[in-house]
Design a protein around this nucleic acid. Structure first.
Lengths: 231, 231
DNA sequence: GTCAATATTATTGTCGACAATTTTGGTTTC
DNA sequence: GAAACCAAAATTGTCGACAATAATATTGAC
């Protein structure tokens, strides 16, 4: 599933755009490991292109905060720290809470019915234990993705889908993330959808925020367990 | 006042970065009017540079959603619609509400004292009617800026300061924006700061959200008054 | 006279090469 | 032996030129 806010424009015309997509995927999935220096000549050679389009793609990656760049020195893939990951959760709590509120107001009945079907599918998956952690989490993103789309606020959707979700996915690829929270998360998803179906925006926001907060706390616990020597 | 999240790096080394700043300012302040096509050759000539750095700057402007770009066609300065402006208010309500909550938890006593001094200054300005609407609004942005910085969440601050605040400022330059809400807004600011001073994060968030919602409603009324034939 | 097809022009996209800065390696000196 | 200084190599930043695509103007046919 491609996570983009706009309708995906089939074949992207320009090389820079295509390279941007490929590089983003490579970075998010860890193929280009965090902290590694990005050499323009070798990357250009690897993709068989010139440095011009590559630099334009890098500028976009920089704006997405997937690479850090120092003038006259070069670019490195970012290394997500625990603090930065938790910062993202806080922002998602604010934005997706608002998105749930808006979705309750704007989402069409048909879209809500679709969403319910998706949750039924997830419920089935969880019941049958057919959820490798990875796929479960992708399903989780799928749920959040639909709520955000349902908000009807395109800029809100862009912020989440173009940047934050990629960063979240990058973190999940970096650490193993076999969530033992699947059952709880699913229950929380159902509550959110119920509130949306009843057009109760205030409740939907409250439930979504609590859901993301719970995910953040679970992540905090996991981080604390991984590195007990850290601050 | 330069609105940037990072500590401004004095003289930006590379041309592309400098051009990005200049172009952003020119677009935000309306020097390059909304909807106008951006021709790479003429702009490059105007700045006395080559097209390479210019294109890199354009890619960053695209990421900031200040220009829209179609492959093989070119880039145009965006034209903020009423709907887009209101979308921004909604996002600010979510993000700055969260920022106020975090500020109540993280801001230092010294920073809060500074903030109170700033509000006292504003109060004085308003009492003396020394507030051309424009300056008042800049003061407004200054207030919001400090809260966001006080949140301690760097990514949150980046989203607001690097993108949303520029868009808000662009709109204000586009339409005259002589706010008659200065007195009310100031009162609302004071309530937010009081809540922060008392370390009441929940209340601070609630007050900040109500404040931004009130600003949005005022803008909605102004928009409705300007174009009564619109939907 | 109007519409359509075609040729021309202009603009964007891409490339290779040069200049400037940084990093690295070596040499010298204390 | 270590530190500092200098030189060489590599990398980034910038530029001008070519290729490909889209917009425009022209010409022809009906």
């Amino acid at each position: 599933m491609a996570i983009t806010a706009e309708a995906l424009p089939e074949v992207t015309a320009t090389i820079a755009d295509r390279i941007f997509d490929q590089l983003r995927q490579a970075i998010v999935e860890g193929e280009i490991p965090p902290g590694s220096k990005i050499s323009e000549p070798v990357l250009a050679a690897r993709f068989g292109i010139s440095r011009g389009p590559l630099r334009e793609a890098m500028r976009r990656l920089e704006s997405s905060s997937l690479v850090e760049r120092k003038p006259n020195v070069g670019a490195r893939v970012i290394t997500l720290t625990s603090e930065q990951l938790l910062e993202i959760y806080v922002i998602r709590e604010a934005l997706e809470g608002m998105a749930a509120r808006l979705a309750a107001e704007h989402m069409s009945d048909a879209a809500i019915a679709d969403l319910k079907r998706l949750l039924a599918q997830h419920r089935n998956d969880v019941a049958q234990e057919e959820w490798q952690a990875y796929f479960q989490k992708e399903g989780d993103l799928d749920f959040h993705f639909r709520i955000v789309q349902g908000s009807g606020n395109r800029r809100l959707a862009n912020i989440l889908c173009n940047d934050l979700y990629h960063l979240a996915r990058m973190y999940r690829c970096q650490f193993g993330m076999k969530s033992d929270r699947a059952r709880d998360a699913l229950k929380e998803h159902e509550l959110v959808v119920d509130a949306i179906a009843e057009r109760d925006g205030e409740l939907a926001e409250w439930l979504m925020r609590r859901h993301i907060r719970a995910s953040r706390k679970a992540t905090e616990r996991r981080l604390a367990a991984m590195r007990p020597s850290d601050t």
